[in-house]
Design a protein around this nucleic acid. Structure first.
Length: 763
DNA sequence: TCGCGACTTCAGGTT
DNA sequence: GAAGTCGCGA
């Protein structure tokens, strides 16, 4: 056969990996080494060589990575039958087919973190433990860790019940089995159970394992360095009959040890699978020489590591810079201004920029600053769209329709909107239901029989249960319609439907957004399973998946360092490179070298996302836990070759209209400038919340806010609501408007370029 | 039963 | 800064 066309853009080593046909293969791929390309091309080659698409299983960690690979494969192979999935999705799929074997029904519910906490609370109170004394989150973390290591409830009990373990662990030993019982009786699983159940399915029923093993002749796993024990065993179970397993990964990018990932899985791959072919991809196609060198000098300080050569033929580029700021508000403001001016100069587009940070909580100041400077941005994570109360409430209604056994969902919605069914009535009903072995809905239908149930509450419960019984996908016709029916019959949005209050309007918009997401889903999937499918999608989706790729000038992207893995941007800022933050204090506490080195890998991952420019920042004071705290620069900074700069020079003294190129070593920011920035920072204005919903709708572009507000025009302010412009003053970036708000006779003056005012209509 | 305000406690990353 | 708990009054 001739050299296939698709080899033309590949290096010899890459081709070697692509051409590998059968048997185990380990691809050790450094950052930016074209790993995804190798994987997709290999799949395309397999198909070319006659492998059926449905005999191939490609597994990634995030939905985003799965979608991306799926997309690339479609263009490469024209095959629709190729399944690229995340571990969790794959397991959900298998589990729906074999639910009965582990005691579930196929319509089981996948609980998210909030549901899980609720379930733990319920269990705690049944066991007469005070939730205040045993934080549900901590209990869950311990249970989750156990599950990641494949320690089941009985095993956990066996290990700890009678031992002299600490008190808390002993309590968990009581809660864990009760929690599992609760899940089973609710026909529900948590994230970890998805994996756990499948491992048991495969390990205890070899005929089932064998069936899936035969079905998936070729298994490919991405980011293998992040697999945990359960995932490891699933992969193993699928690679017994046919050993065509190929995994890709990079030990230097293992950053999920806290979630139970075992870096050993990739390190011992060659021992696990005899005759493994090993391919090393060390040439970087992404970053400039100086950026790669800086990242390399950092990671070479890890001792628990196999040395690796990172090379690139890219240009040398600019040095990595460390920007030092007096405090975090100035840091945020300077970055926002720098980005804005770089874009206005025509040098770059918004989408060229990404800002990474160690913890979500420090994104707030950045968001405020970007909003003030009308920089369009999107945030991965933050307060997830699907975590919002109104969205969760409605999804709980749908879930209850799909799975009437779901107790968490029942509890969530039984008194929302208020129906006069209080805590006491609820717990009477629950006791009754459990005594009689009924679902809560069934029990509610006979609320009259429940001991001590007040007449009024009983009537409400019966009405509620009858209403729930009348909801069905078949009657409504589509998921979107079903949501609309629920909203209407329950009167869910009534309290805020005609409100002018900003928060209420936001809620309403979120409900609309959910409906349109459902409509979207309706058009893609067949009607019969679509409710289940929709619910599965909503529970396995994250805000990361809502991120937009290239679209015109796009948006600046904000995310945690963890979320950044697998992505790349021309310009990257990594903020807060300070001791106790990066490395995080938890990794320093007990001098745990494994955790400490994971922090270093995390910074390494972040740095290697950058193509052309990389800025690291540190501030002398940082707002943390609600107050401004002095900081110490990160020890990691001493391990990197970089240029140090007073970060405030980034943006010092821009003229009002024209753009002045940023010379990093130019004049310093004067005290007055710092004061002016601070004054602006203390303004009571607040940019609009950016929700995943808004991102999806593509309408959060703060930059598109109108700049001129003629006297008499109607405007809206996120905090003060609707108002009318009564006066204007100043010019250029200092232009001000005075607005009279409808509420409370309030009148405020704003600097137009720094406030979140929105023009309404044409008047 | 519900809503409010005062209070405490907690704050790592993701499927 | 946010979220959950508690006690009070309507």
């Amino acid at each position: 056969m001739d050299v296939p066309i698709l080899h033309q853009q590949l290096t010899p080593v890459q081709i070697e990996a692509v051409e590998h046909f059968s048997g185990p293969m380990l691809v050790l791929a450094g950052p930016g080494s074209g790993k995804t390309r190798v994987v997709t091309h290999r799949v395309a080659r397999l198909i070319e060589k006659g492998v059926k698409p449905w005999n191939i299983l490609a597994i990634t960690f995030t939905n985003k990575a799965a979608a991306e690979m799926s997309e690339r494969l479609k263009t490469l192979t024209n095959s629709q039958n190729l399944w690229v999935s995340t571990f969790h999705r794959f397991c959900a799929h298998v589990l729906r087919q074999r639910a009965g074997v582990v005691g579930l029904q196929p319509n089981f519910t996948i609980l998210d973190t909030a549901d899980q906490k609720q379930a733990i609370r319920q269990v705690l109170s049944e066991l007469d433990y005070d939730a205040a004394h045993y934080p549900p989150g901590k209990i869950l973390a311990m249970i989750s860790n156990a599950k990641n290591d494949m320690i089941t409830a009985p095993m956990f009990v066996g290990q700890f019940e009678d031992s002299v373990a600490d008190h808390f662990t002993a309590v968990v030993a009581k809660v864990y089995p009760a929690y599992q019982k609760y899940l089973l009786s609710s026909n529900a699983v948590d994230f970890d159970d998805l994996l756990l159940h499948v491992v048991h399915l495969f390990e205890e029923h070899d005929e089932i394992r064998s069936q899936y093993d035969d079905r998936y002749q070729y298994v490919l796993v991405d980011e293998y360095q992040d697999t945990n024990e359960a995932q490891y065993r699933i992969v193993r179970a699928l690679s017994q009959n046919s050993r065509n397993l190929s995994v890709t990964g990079d030990p230097d990018q293992s950053i999920y040890g806290w979630r139970g990932a075992k870096i050993d899985n990739i390190l011992k791959f060659e021992q696990d699978y005899q005759d493994t072919k090993i391919i090393k991809l060390e040439q970087n196609f992404r970053s400039s020489k100086l950026i790669l060198a800086a990242a390399d000098s950092l990671i070479s300080h890890n001792r628990l590591r196999k040395a690796k050569e990172l090379t690139t033929e890219n240009a040398e580029g600019e040095p990595v810079e460390l920007l030092h700021f007096p405090d975090s508000p100035v840091e945020a403001d300077s970055i926002a201004r720098h980005i804005r001016h770089t874009v206005e100069s025509g040098e770059r587009d918004w989408l060229d920029f990404a800002i990474f940070y160690r913890v979500n909580s420090i994104s707030r100041q950045l968001e405020l600053a970007l909003g003030r400077h009308h920089v369009p941005y999107q945030v991965a994570a933050g307060v997830a769209f699907y975590q919002r109360a109104e969205v969760r409430d409605l999804l709980a209604y749908l879930d209850l329709v799909n799975n009437p056994q779901n107790r968490a969902a029942f509890v969530r919605v039984v008194n929302v909107p208020l129906r006069g069914i209080g805590k006491t009535s609820q717990s009477r009903l629950m006791n009754y239901a459990e005594d009689k072995g009924l679902t809560y809905i069934e029990a509610a239908l006979q609320a009259d029989e429940v001991p001590k149930m007040p007449k009024r509450a009983a009537a409400s419960l019966k009405a509620f249960a009858r209403m729930m019984e009348n909801f069905s996908l078949a009657d409504s016709g589509s998921v979107a319609q079903l949501i609309e029916d629920v909203v209407e019959k329950t009167g869910y949005t009534r309290p805020w439907s005609s409100s002018q209050n900003e928060q209420d309007m936001q809620r309403l918009a979120n409900v609309e957004e959910l409906i349109s997401a459902a409509r979207n889903h309706d058009t893609i999937f067949d009607a019969d399973t679509s409710l289940e499918g929709f619910l599965e999608t909503t529970s396995l989706v994250s805000d990361l998946d809502a991120l937009e790729g290239d679209s015109e000038k796009g948006k600046v992207t904000l995310m945690t360092l963890h979320a950044a893995k697998g992505l790349e941007f021309p310009v990257v800022y990594i903020i807060g490179v300070e001791q106790n933050l990066l490395p995080h204090e938890r990794s320093l506490r007990e001098g745990n070298p494994r955790e400490y080195e994971e922090e270093r890998r995390l910074l390494f991952v972040g740095m290697t996302r950058a193509e052309e420019r990389l800025y690291l920042t540190a501030s002398s004071y940082r707002d943390l836990h609600g107050r401004s705290m002095p900081t110490i620069p990160s020890d990691f900074l001493s391990e990197i070759d970089l240029v140090q700069t007073d970060g405030t020079t980034l943006t010092s003294d821009f003229p009002e209209t024209a753009y002045r190129p940023t010379s990093l070593a130019s004049s310093d920011l004067s005290d007055e400038d710092v004061k002016a920035i601070r004054a602006a920072l203390n303004r009571p204005d607040k940019p609009q919340l950016t929700t995943a919903a808004a991102l999806l709708a593509g309408n959060n572009s703060a930059a598109s806010l109108p700049f001129n507000f003629p006297i008499g025009s109607s405007v809206r302010h996120p905090r003060y609501g609707l108002g009318t412009v009564t006066a204007a003053g100043g010019f250029g970036h200092r232009r001000t408007v005075t607005v009279e708000f409808e509420e409370e006779d309030r009148s405020e003056t704003f600097i137009v370029s720094k406030c979140p005012l929105q023009r309404i209509g044409n008047r």
